[in-house]
Design a protein around this nucleic acid. Structure first.
Lengths: 238, 238
DNA sequence: ATTTTTATTTTGATTAACCAAAATTATGTT
DNA sequence: AACATAATTTTGGTTAATCAAAATAAAAAT
């Protein structure tokens, strides 16, 4: 049974792989994510390699094995189900559940986890819009696009909020912008550096491009002129 | 912030004090409860003494300070609220929640704990009938009596089940014997070495004296069989 | 009052995680 | 190519929690 430290290393490697296209993860990046000294990360990764959880290439970095990946995904499942549970069942604010889940993800048994999963009706996304892996480890991956790259006339579903900042979350939530919500892009003005969007059943709201770039969406209706989406939507946290 | 190891030491000392009349706890007893070698317990207790959580008398034993007691009670509150939550909200069986709570009691934040407390309606006993300390650390202490010492005609509320054995719990549960349940003692026969009791809305059951001694109750009506008992309202706590 | 038994403490070692700082190797720049 | 910079690994050391086995002290039995 992996310690919670080991689980965290695997999780961080996994998350980093997610945004770098499954490339090998540099020791610097890992030690930064884990908030430990580089030397510590090195010796840890050697141990993980020895137990067959990562492949470690000295002077280069490390990448998860299947076994390591499985564990990481399971941790992520726990984390995200717990987050949703805390919001939906216990009424915590979505801005505060991340920290809570950070510790609970290592102490909840599979038995309790599955009860939670049932109670929530086998949900597929957590309160930040991050996908919840299935019990079998499958992650439903949607092609998300940055809101700042959308065009006027498009209809989209809010996917993920990339900024976990509590103030930001409260702000957008107030205007009806939250994962799952359908919105229509009313206007995208490069000169004004702003996007105007109307969440269904809500007043339209105008966001500056910087704020818009913290929100990634899934395009439902491409009905406007077609262009290439350049900005990548990346996940910041779990 | 005390480590979960420290929390466990304090909890075990507290529990042992409870049953030995707040006397000093011998190192042997502690090391046995903690399932560590005697030497380990000794060195740990020295540290606890240094941090003002216990008073350690070499060659004699240790006893909690107020500070240590406060922490122990808080851990117990967490443990018991979690147990009840797992049974009531997530539908786990009361025979399996003890183990789960054993780890969760160290990782749940006070914020989440209070949400759970609210959701459960500030309960005062856990699924085994053990009292749940209040947020302020008060423990409601009822005068409980052994079922084996009750007399025919008495009406009592099941208090605690002293045997955590899963089979036993399942058995008595099947016959409606569980904490909070009101029962009437129909017969107490020393010769037959048995007690016959009728849980409200259930068939009467006969228990051998040994089994009966694993159940402690709170006497509600001391009247012997010469009086008509008026029913009082009961809570539907399970 | 000795001896034996039991309880407790000490000693020396181990393991998982960590750090700081020195040594090494790659990378980038002139 | 030679030097400077950045990333990585090594080295030596720390802390919390543990154990086994030796040493000591207290309690019980003879």
């Amino acid at each position: 049974m992996p310690s919670s430290t080991v689980e965290n290393y695997l999780k961080q490697i996994f998350l980093e792989q997610q945004i770098n296209g499954n490339d090998i993860v540099a020791m610097g990046k890992l030690s930064e994510r884990m908030e430990v000294s580089p030397g510590t990360a090195t010796s840890m990764v050697k141990l993980l390699d020895k137990s067959g959880l990562v492949n470690y290439e000295p002077r280069n970095g490390s990448i998860l094995t299947n076994k390591g990946s499985e564990i990481a995904i399971h941790v992520l499942r726990r984390h995200r189900l717990i987050e949703l549970f805390l919001v939906k069942e216990l009424g915590l604010d979505w801005s505060e559940v991340h920290e809570e889940a950070e510790t609970l993800e290592h102490s909840i048994s599979d038995k309790v986890l599955e009860k939670i999963d049932i109670k929530l009706g086998h949900p597929s996304v957590d309160p930040h819009g991050d996908p919840i892996p299935s019990a079998e480890g499958k992650i439903e991956r949607k092609k998300l696009v940055n809101l700042a790259d959308c065009h006027a006339g498009q209809v989209a579903r809010i996917g993920r909020i990339l900024d976990q900042n509590s103030e930001f979350l409260k702000f957008i939530n107030k205007y009806g912008i939250r994962p799952g919500q359908i919105v229509e892009i009313k206007d995208h003005d490069t000169i004004a550096d702003a996007v105007n969007l109307a969440p269904k059943n809500n007043q339209p709201v105008t966001l500056g491009m910087h704020a818009a770039s913290k929100i990634s969406v899934e395009i439902i209706d491409k009905s406007s002129k077609n262009e290439i989406n350049k900005r990548q939507s990346q996940s910041s946290n779990t």
